[in-house]
Design a binder for these strands. Structure first.
Length: 926
RNA sequence: GGGCUCAUAGCUCAGUUGGUUAGAGCGCACCCCUGAUAAGGGUGAGGUCGCAAGUUCGAAUCUCGCUGGGCCCA
């Protein structure tokens, strides 16, 4: 007789295939999601559920996504999917950031290759097309990763209605009185008379006129140098033409400064630099009169070396001990450091150089001189006044404009700012930060110090690709109009025709008929030509998207429950979003912020083309599967640097297979089962598993709540390996295969397998989105049922009374003890193996001598079950000094079930003598 | 140079308030199974917890310094 055919072996057809073949499986699953419009289906399934709003930070659409972008979006997807499975409705509107310099530069490069100089509208059109192209590319890439979102209606910052809403955010901001115009140093090309971006600069060797200049002490409020005559400090600079704009001398607060006596004069310079200065200035007999830390000089003033005005002592940490004198010439109009230091001390920003590089009337006697020429003039004048200590040619690297190869300068230009002091905005933000939940907690320290120390926000850019700043100027007065009516007229124009229209149309075509300047009554206007900083665009998204002003589908849902971005966004998006939301709505736009680190290679080094260590997320998905990539994201601690390499992905591929096969086995046992059947009274082994599963659910759902996806996957993986593969799945084989198909024992086992399979699939679904869908579908198919997407289902989290019931339940305690006995038996058998030709534990009877407690526990199991659990032929146990030993089993092996037990005996079947156990005879009706 | 931060087996991670021989999984080695089979099981090797000093009866855990990464700024 063919006994094997009477067994109920797992049916490969009834379960998922062992080999996932994710690269081809995933696109197929994604196709079914697309057909069933998964996003909408999920939203509908949660129509009445509480809402959890996750607001997407927009990636920049100038290239395909890289691994970091992928990780970011996958993490967001984990949040969205897991929160959805907790029963929330989690609307997710994906965003794209479209304006700004990188796209403009990419486009300009293409024009340059064709030797075309585009008009502004042509350039903007090309930028729009470029952004639209990558918007499409990125969308497809995100879909390939299995990310669910409202892909049919994303927010894009260049969409007309969105641009209009950005203008309205500006309107609300200016209505609140936060917007002002001021001067600020900008990288400037005097030859092409334009502002330049950092990326348009290249450095070349350059010979400058370097000078040492002395500044006489003017006021010494703390009388540090009382009674000492002829006190000066000395600065060193390579830009003599900026001396007319000097307003301060910067000292390092923590460094030591010496007051050195040279002849009749006393000079205050950095102690460490005294030797260098002495050499440069030819000092011989010097005497250190006094030494003190820079901090002491705060409030001291010196006299400007040319003009009759003070130059105040200020503190700055960028003062170095390398060059110069340790005292830094500070001209707020001509350097960023200088400007910020000046802001901190409330210094003005004199407009000493015009757009052609010629000094203005604010430069006094130097008015009308070109800046380069001015070097000489200033040197001569200083020399004449006896303030010049030395002048010489100095070769160093100096910024040049990429476009015309000419040297550039910093000059003060008019810019638009958002004031952080108006209405106590800064302190209101600091208060809001306290109320936000920051994951990890350090994020709070980081943003706090940035908000506390950042200067006013300069929101204007002298660029073509952006949303024009909606400001009109009186044609004659040049006085700007910060009037809601005027700005709204711009918003309405842009809503209809896009922000291009702002650049094309005349002011008179935009403003309402007969509009008068609120301050001057003028009726003729010109327009601002600057655009908004792109951080203004993205900083506006909380309002543009979550107030639902652009598309009602996006809903009124401020503040968002969650923002999740890389830690660089403390300075970027978290910052700009907070400023605008606090100023306009007087609240932070987010309740919780999760930040993640950056992807590195396997060695912890940044990925770069140069190092050849770049992993492309789409290539990796097509090679290993998006689920493996997603497993990697979950399995790595995203708070710190996130290492990735082929070896690492392979490793997660292994873990993936472990989980997959564990689930595969469970489902393979479900044939003939249906969850609507009357529930069987579970056998204790099955009850044990169900309780273990419930503990796992609780553990994993709390981990999901805490954004700890690594803990979820570690728990699930360990569960699959230890509880399932190593124990439960092995233990049920005997009766699942050999008992009668419709036996109570099998039914109990199936019920447990179903529960475990269903639950595991759900737990894993936010991470292994495709595999879970595959498993879910297959499982229902095997049971002859139809199903909704797993992503509409809800975690079955046990309540606290159920958890209490499980903790310390009789079954859990007994099985825990069993596990430790199992470990001892396994260890002992490993040593016994080989003696007497024994290879396999099924060949032996184990004799366990143990203490009374363990004995009592063992006694609660049947011998047959114990033998099954311990993978041996039979078990004998005694009380006494701990010992485990083995003897060859005296029992016959059942030809059908391969067990060797006392009840196996000879029987004649079809004229053939075979050994069969009692159970097996019953199972096949003998 | 400044702010924030990280460093535990080859790899990915756990290690509660400082307290017995530092844990898990993957990988690796050897063995078993061949009725989960391009699967499954068992056992084992592998760490001076980045380095150095200090506090303490006792430190992977606390302090300081150093080295090397990462983000932001300069």
């Amino acid at each position: 007789m063919d006994f094997k055919s009477t067994l109920h072996l797992p049916d490969a057809e009834a379960t998922i295939p062992m080999k996932a073949n994710l690269p081809s499986l995933e696109p197929a699953i994604q196709e079914t999601w697309k057909k069933g419009s998964i996003y909408n289906t999920i939203q509908k399934s949660r129509a009445t559920a509480p809402v959890y709003v996750y607001h997407d930070g927009p990636p920049y659409t100038n290239s395909p996504i890289h691994l970091g972008t992928a990780m970011n979006k996958i993490l967001k997807d984990f949040c969205v999917k897991s929160r959805t499975m907790m029963g929330y409705r989690v609307p997710f509107v994906p965003g794209f950031d479209n304006h700004g310099l990188p796209i403009e530069q990419a486009v300009m490069k293409k024009f340059a290759e064709k030797k075309i100089t585009p008009t502004i509208p042509e350039l903007r059109q090309a930028c729009r097309e470029h952004a639209a192209h990558y918007l499409g590319v990125q969308t497809e890439q995100f879909k390939r990763l299995g990310v669910f979102a409202m892909w049919d209606l994303p927010y894009t910052t260049m969409e007309f209605k969105f641009e209009a809403e950005i203008v309205r955010v500006f309107k609300r901001l200016s209505e609140g009185g936060y917007v002002y115009k001021g001067l600020r140093p900008t990288l400037w090309s005097p030859t092409s008379r334009t502002a330049l971006a950092d990326t348009e600069i290249e450095y070349h060797d350059h010979v400058s006129k370097a000078i040492y200049v002395r500044f006489p002490l003017l006021d010494d409020p703390n009388q540090l140098f009382e009674g000492i005559p002829n006190v000066f400090t000395i600065i060193w600079t390579t830009t003599p033409w900026t001396i007319p704009a000097n307003l301060a001398c910067a000292f390092h607060p923590e460094f030591n400064y010496d007051l050195v006596k040279v002849g009749q004069n006393h000079y205050l310079v950095l102690q460490d630099l005294v030797p260098k200065i002495s050499e440069a200035l030819g000092w011989e007999d010097i005497e250190v009169v006094k030494t003190m830390e820079g901090i002491n000089f705060e409030n001291m003033t010196f006299k400007h070396p040319i003009f009759d005005r003070p130059s105040i002592a200020v503190m700055a940490t960028y003062v170095t001990t390398e060059d110069g004198t340790g005292v830094v010439h500070t001209a707020p109009s001509h350097g960023r450091d200088d400007f910020f230091t000046g802001q901190a001390y409330g210094l003005p920003v004199p407009n000493t150089v015009d757009e052609k590089g010629v000094l203005t009337h604010e430069a006094g006697e130097f008015e009308g001189t070109f800046y380069k020429k001015c070097d000489e003039v200033v040197v001569d004048r200083l020399s004449e006044l006896g303030m010049l200590l030395k002048a010489y040619d100095y070769s160093h690297s100096y910024p040049y404009a990429e476009r015309d190869g000419q040297p550039i300068i910093y000059r003060a230009t008019e810019q638009w700012f958002v004031s952080l002091e108006h209405d106590d905005l800064r302190s209101r933000m600091l208060a809001s930060i306290q109320k936000v939940e920051w994951h990890p907690a350090q994020g709070q320290t980081r943003i706090e110090s940035m908000i506390r120390n950042r200067p006013d926000w300069c929101i204007s850019r002298q660029r073509p690709w952006g949303v024009g700043i909606p400001i009109f100027y009186g044609a004659k007065s040049r006085i700007p109009v910060l009037d809601a009516v005027a700005i709204e007229s711009v918003a309405q124009l842009i809503e209809k025709e896009g922000s291009d229209a702002w650049f094309i149309k005349d002011a008179s075509d935009i403003l309402p008929k007969g509009y008068q300047h609120p301050e001057t009554g003028e009726t003729e206007f010109t327009k601002e030509t600057d655009v908004l900083d792109v951080w203004f665009d993205s900083g506006s998204t909380s309002m543009c998207v979550l107030e639902g002003n652009v598309h009602a589908e996006w809903g009124e849902t401020l503040p968002a429950d969650l923002y999740l971005e890389g830690s660089d966004q403390h300075r970027g998006w978290f910052n700009s979003s907070l400023i605008l939301s606090q100023a306009i709505r007087d609240q932070a736009p987010y309740k919780a912020v999760v930040t993640h680190g950056f992807v590195t290679d396997g060695e912890g080094r940044k990925m770069s083309k140069r190092l050849g260590n770049v992993i492309d997320p789409v290539v990796a998905s097509d090679q290993y599967g998006a689920d493996v990539l997603r497993y990697w994201v979950a399995g790595t601690d995203y708070v710190n640097d996130v290492p990735c390499s082929d070896a690492i992905l392979k490793q997660f591929g292994e873990s993936y297979r472990n989980v997959r096969n564990a689930m595969r086995f469970l489902i393979g046992n479900l044939k003939g089962f249906n969850p609507s059947m009357a529930p069987a009274k579970l056998e204790e082994l099955d009850e044990w598993l169900v309780e273990q599963v419930d503990l796992l659910v609780d553990d994993c759902v709390s981990s999901y709540e805490g954004f700890d996806f690594g803990a979820v996957m570690t728990s699930v993986h360990n569960f699959c390996r230890q509880q399932l593969s190593a124990f439960y799945s092995d233990a049920i084989k005997d009766f699942m295969y050999c008992d009668r198909e419709d036996s109570v024992r099998r039914r109990s086992g199936q019920q447990a397998c179903y529960y475990a399979a269903k639950t595991l699939t759900q737990l894993v679904a936010p991470v292994l989105a495709h595999t879970a869908e595959e498993t879910w579908t297959k499982m229902h198919e095997t049971m002859g049922l139809t199903n909704e997407s797993i992503h509409t289902s809800v975690f079955a989290r046990p309540d606290s009374s159920r958890l209490q019931e499980i903790e310390g339940s009789d079954i859990q305690v007994r099985f825990a003890e069993l596990q430790s006995v199992r470990q001892e038996v396994n260890g002992a058998f490993e040593l016994h193996k080989g003696t007497d030709g024994i290879k396999n534990s099924q060949e032996v009877v184990v004799y366990i001598t143990t203490d009374q407690d363990t004995f009592d526990v063992l006694e609660t199991f049947s011998r047959a079950d114990l033998a099954n659990y311990l993978k041996v032929s039979w078990v004998e146990y005694f009380v006494g000094d701990s010992e485990v030993r083995f003897e060859r089993s005296p029992y016959y092996e059942c030809v059908r079930s391969r067990i060797r037990r006392p009840d196996v005996s000879e029987i004649e079947v079809d004229g053939e003598k075979v050994y069969l156990s009692q159970r097996d005879r019953e199972a096949i009706g003998l």
